[in-house]
């Protein structure tokens, strides 16, 4: 028990709790499905989790800054669409590496622009992030549907699929991509001046302002970078599904919010770490794969996500701990 306490202090309380939850899930699902504890299942999770992971990371920094980015999925879609149209313009399946790189650059630019516009409005007009990102989400969805007429865009070079399906040193390529982005995000948030500002803006923007931090620039940058990570997610989506459809991955929005709260991020901003969120992503991926393996109805899974989100918030809420304490005193 002492050992657990020590690890808990070293890694942080939420990390240990999440590790325990993860072990529990593995046990439950291995009991329910013989296919859960197999290399094939874990490999498939390794290919699936990075997409959720990237989108969650895109949601993370705005959350820590006290805001929210509801437009993540559609920013990813639009970025993917930007890349797709460039690759198609350069010959589709025959397009060369330079066209792919150009397309990726354009996708990242598109994501950055979408993010920057939100950041500018939030920072300089002072509008509510929920409202701004919701409007951006409606706009991007409309734009995407307008451009694609609601259909699929497909036909890309075969090499490009490697990013989605290939592997490097025995690990899935998407996992590498995610690892790089997550590491960069960790350094950005915990080590850079900008990251420091993000936490301060999230805990009290006016006090941060009174301390001489560039709060507005911080907000613009956060949302721009969030857009860039969405774009990377969009590129990955393109590579994995070999097509773009606006609305693809729509359901992931809820799961990213869930991952973030499961990872112990303060919903009012100012606190939160990257590592517990990554654990939360893995847990949710296990839950998703596990539900899939035991043949649960996908709609039932949606409901389970929602219930799980409520449960996590209830368990994390102060009211709940107060409740527990009060009970503790009585007994």
């Amino acid at each position: 028990m002492k050992g657990v306490e020590r690890i808990r202090r070293l890694l942080g309380k939420e990390t240990v709790d999440l590790l325990l939850l993860m072990v529990l899930l593995v046990l439950i699902f291995s009991f329910l499905s013989p296919r859960f504890l197999t290399a094939a299942n874990f490999a498939s999770m390794g290919y699936q989790a990075p997409l959720l992971g990237l989108l969650t990371i895109a949601m993370l920094a705005p959350m820590i800054s006290g805001g929210l980015n509801l437009a993540i999925v559609y920013t990813a879609n639009i970025s993917g669409l930007t890349m797709a149209s460039i690759v198609l313009a350069f010959g589709g399946p025959e397009a060369g590496t330079s066209a792919i790189l150009l397309g990726a650059a354009a996708a990242i630019l598109a994501g950055a622009i979408a993010g920057a516009v939100m950041g500018l409005i939030i920072a300089y007009v002072g509008a509510h992030p929920i409202l701004v990102s919701l409007a951006m989400m409606i706009f991007l969805r409309g734009l995407g549907e307008f451009l694609t007429r609601g259909g699929d865009v497909s036909g890309f070079p075969a090499e490009f699929a490697l990013l989605g399906h290939g592997s490097l040193l025995g690990l899935p390529a998407p996992l590498w991509l995610f690892a790089v982005v997550a590491l960069a995000w960790q350094i950005l948030l915990r080590k850079s001046r900008h990251g420091f500002s993000v936490y301060m803006v999230g805990s009290n923007i006016r006090a941060a302002d009174y301390s001489g931090l560039p709060t507005r620039r911080t907000l613009v940058l956060i949302y721009t970078l969030s857009g860039v990570v969405c774009a990377i997610a969009g590129i990955l989506m393109l590579a994995r599904f070999n097509s773009v459809r606006v609305g693809h991955g729509e359901a992931l929005l809820l799961v990213t919010v869930l991952a973030i709260f499961l990872g112990g991020i303060d919903p009012f901003g100012g606190h939160g770490k990257v590592l517990p969120v990554i654990l939360a992503i893995l847990i949710l991926q296990m839950l998703s794969s596990g539900l899939n393996l035991i043949g649960a109805n996908p709609h039932l899974s949606t409901a389970v996500w929602g219930l799980f989100l409520i449960l996590v918030m209830v368990l994390r809420s102060e009211q709940f701990t107060l409740f527990k304490k009060r009970k503790g005193i009585k007994t």
Partner: peptide
Amino acid sequence: QLGLLQKQSIADNTVISVLD
């Protein structure tokens, strides 16, 4: 409300204006 960031640590509150 304005002098300190009550949610943050003593260290962070001390260095906030001199990150450079």
